[in-house]
Design a protein around this nucleic acid. Structure first.
Lengths: 201, 201, 201, 201
DNA sequence: TATGAATGAGAATTCATTCAT
DNA sequence: CATGAATGAATTCTCATTCAT
């Protein structure tokens, strides 16, 4: 269905343009014609590749998430220790900001924008991302590293939320007081410590 | 200028109506005339109390935050123990959802929706809220309960983010798997443990 | 519902403008903004009085038909003779062209334009108009003037169709070869003769 | 230029597709790409055979009318009696509905749709069709069967209009109360009687 | 102050037509 | 001849905001 697109180049140009425009002005304040101009295609061309403006945002999100998911899974595959995995996850999550600011901004700010997207759109990709965390937690519990009373379903959201709020801080603030590595260490440290049987002091 | 408002009643009705409508449909999908209808005032009346649609959202946010700030500060004042304070904060933050669903939704989902608000609007009230957390952390460090290597500026965002993500989960999902008390305990437990010198096991 | 329109003046101006524009360019080739300009109102004002472009055409048709129905019924009420009634009907039908060219054109040409209108829109007013004819036919039959084997339901359409086609001729052709009175006499003569037991020779 | 069309097959497929689509959705609501799809040709191919969308409608009309004209002339050629000719014409006109519903619908509803077509496009074929009727009338008058005071130019339109309105009834209404033969008899009876010196009783 | 009818700029989307392949 | 991806002008309708009453 989406594979038989003749011109992947134009599709990609539109996606890239949309990421840029959405990141800069927000979804509602972005005009389809701006995206078209940025992508150097005609307005109508957008509608050959996307059903409507909403569909651009959703497609874009899924593509970005796919890439992020692939990446993080690959990185984690090489690491057997749940504690190290938590550290890796935190670092990787925050590093996306550095490598792909605009994409991070769109995911960060825009996908939350509307009840429409979050309530109606079954966010499968995001759940997959969250479940990577809960899988690590469960693995750590099985190995006797993380406490049994930790509820993985709560921990995954808490950990993601902590990282995500940090991302927001970077995206929104002009002067960053902490570097990404410090923040990643702090947050993963907090959670590892918080979930472990004994303080790592 | 905002203090000499003759008719506080109408102002409040508009605010309450806006909270309801924004929570239900999101900021961009809400119409000024809908808010007017819900508030039982004429469309034009809204512009006697607010500069424009954006101003409604900002005013509403400030009023809600004022009330939340006042409330949480009062609650925490009676509690000397930083550990208990963290627990109290978490519980109180999540309980807002129960007592004032709509307000929570608006703050949760809508204020983040637009780069416009978060980038251009210097969010003083939100910072005050965050700083309550860092103050507790610092207090705990001074009392030798929380580890010195914890960076309060990171911890405050991590803690808020964790709670906030949990809120989002409640706002957006229909079936809630964990009750508020459990979530509050889990999250405050994680952070207290994570910030303490020794595990509370 | 439609009676509580505050400003009947604007409503009428829009209707009059629409009649003019639709008659001149046809429904599909008429732009809402042209109607607005002609009515000297803003584009948006149209949508305070009509749901959409289709609604303008339908409203306009119903208003015109109401006026035509009222008029013809009044005229026929004074006349007891079915034969004279047929003559009156024909003359009156064609005279509308002279007194209200544009209205006649819209009814003539535009209302037939689209399957949409004719198939989906239950054309009650038009049926009332047609039934005036069949009522005359039935009355004539009861009085022994018109032949019993005439099917009123067919005759009404035949008579209307004959008049209508003549109208079309006037609306569309630039040079009119017959005057309205002649055409009315010819057509009513044909039908009266055709429906009578003996030729009026 | 139109005679040297290499591929008559494609031309015909497009015409047939257009008849189908126009009949179903009306001219303005039909998309060129729909016609192309129905005809199993590429969108661009249509423009190798037709100048534009309007040209499809006009060509289609002329082709249908040519066929109808040929047919009716052939049928009438064998019949010397003007009275029988009128009967034949009525029957044949209405029978087209049965043999070629869609074509009839397009001619019926669509050709009237736009002032553009009816005013600007000199409708030669249609006039030929009408003149078949007036020729019969004149012939009848010469033979002393039809009254001298009948104006053939009015009678032709009246007769056509009567038949045409009956067609519209069939095309638009779902439940048909009269069969085609009855209607043809009624209408031709009306006119023959109406035009004759003495009632046929 | 309060009203709500009126405004008109603005935006998403459509679709006839073209033209490089 | 045939294709169908690309174009971009054109159009309906929305809705924040104003202002005469």
């Amino acid at each position: 269905m989406r594979n038989d697109r003749k011109n992947t180049d134009k599709f990609n140009r539109i996606i890239r343009a949309a990421v840029k425009i959405f990141a800069r002005k927000g979804f509602f304040n972005s005009k389809v014609s701006e995206i078209a101009r940025e992508a150097k295609v005609a307005d109508g061309t957008i509608y050959l590749y996307f059903q409507n403006k909403d569909d651009i945002l959703i497609s874009l999100f899924e593509i970005l998430m796919d890439s992020i998911l692939l990446d993080i899974k690959e990185k984690l595959a090489e690491e057997p220790d749940p504690v190290q995995k938590i550290k890796l996850f935190a670092l990787h999550h925050l590093q996306i900001l550095r490598t792909n600011q605009e994409a991070a901004e769109v995911i960060q700010v825009e996908l939350r924008q509307s009840t429409k997207f979050m309530k109606e759109y079954k966010n499968e990709k995001f759940l997959q991302y969250l479940n990577i965390i809960s899988d690590i937690v469960k693995e750590g519990q099985k190995k006797g590293i993380f406490r049994e009373d930790i509820v993985p379903g709560v921990a995954k959201r808490a950990f993601f939320g902590a990282l995500d709020e940090m991302s927001r801080y970077w995206v929104l603030s002009s002067k960053k007081q902490y570097d990404i590595e410090t923040a990643a260490e702090q947050i993963s440290g907090l959670f590892i410590n918080g979930m472990s049987y004994r303080s790592l002091s």
